[in-house]
Nucleic acid binder design. Sequence first.
DNA 1: GTCTATACACCGATAGAC
DNA 2: GTCTATCGGTGTATAGAC
Lengths: 181, 181
Amino acid sequence: MSKDTAIPQLLTVFRQYGYEGATLAKLSEATGLGKASLYHHFPKGKEEMAASVLDYLNQGLQENILAPLHSDRPPVDRIRAMNKNVDAFYHQGEQACLLALLSVGEAHDLFQSQIQQALDLWIDSLSQVAIEAGVNPKTAHQRAEDAVLQIQGALVLARGLNNTAIFKRVLKRLPEMLLSA
Amino acid sequence: MSKDTAIPQLLTVFRQYGYEGATLAKLSEATGLGKASLYHHFPKGKEEMAASVLDYLNQGLQENILAPLHSDRPPVDRIRAMNKNVDAFYHQGEQACLLALLSVGEAHDLFQSQIQQALDLWIDSLSQVAIEAGVNPKTAHQRAEDAVLQIQGALVLARGLNNTAIFKRVLKRLPEMLLSA
DNA sequence: GTCTATACACCGATAGAC
DNA sequence: GTCTATCGGTGTATAGAC
């Protein structure tokens, strides 16, 4: 069990329990590493684990979400490609967004800049696609904010209503919502 | 300091720190009551405090959000009346939604039915207004889900981006979004 | 009904053997 | 690099005086 293989498993714990709820016992069990071993890989402890998970997440955002948006295919295809990966990443709406969870409580102060940066990147990339599809820049930016907003809202409602249908509906209408004239 | 006056202050702690992050020390400080006094009012401890806060919240939902929706004024005025109270309740987007926070981790298992019930009530009331405005029932229900979804998403983004402008924009367009032909 | 004092488990974190 | 054992601190929860 190396550091790189541990991080995805740390992620699953953080996004199920949040920052305060993700205890070292849970993190240890999920990774199969003892607490002391976790401290070998992450000397600053839980805070460093969460920061590393956020870095890993940011990398996944770049590769699976943003890269498809910057391809040379038609705008609608790029949004669809993103959708496919978003759907997979959030497990069809069953899994929460770590960026939202780490905006709460003590974690908010620790990770706000990382979170803001990730959200801004996502919004800017979406906005760029809409602009290339002929939407005027100001409208494009608002639509891009709206797209991320609706994904986040859908994840909240999916958990609160115990029903992922809303998440699927949101993804389905994203291309039209972002690109329509 | 009675039980009823303590609950609003417990609410502020829970919705700032979440369930696991809301420690008895914080709850004690916020209410001005010692831990033992909190246990006098809430014998089952933190879980009962959160449940009572949820009940209080549900009552506020009924009085400040749902009641205006069921008035005999024109539909657009009812939505506007709701907006005004939603804006105040979430402090113009600065404060998180407890229903969303308690959908995470251990709290999810404890409070899911209360949360689902509150969200369903809100959605149904919004849907009813749209139906009375002439929107067909199926569309009305989807728009009502969308309205709550966008409020929740806006709250997530407001914290993540440290910017409440999005929340204000969402509220502003709600009447049109819900009621347009 | 509120307090001080305390019980006991678990928290994050570390020491040190291997 | 992983483990067992343990530290000090804090978590939830209680006892009992006032």
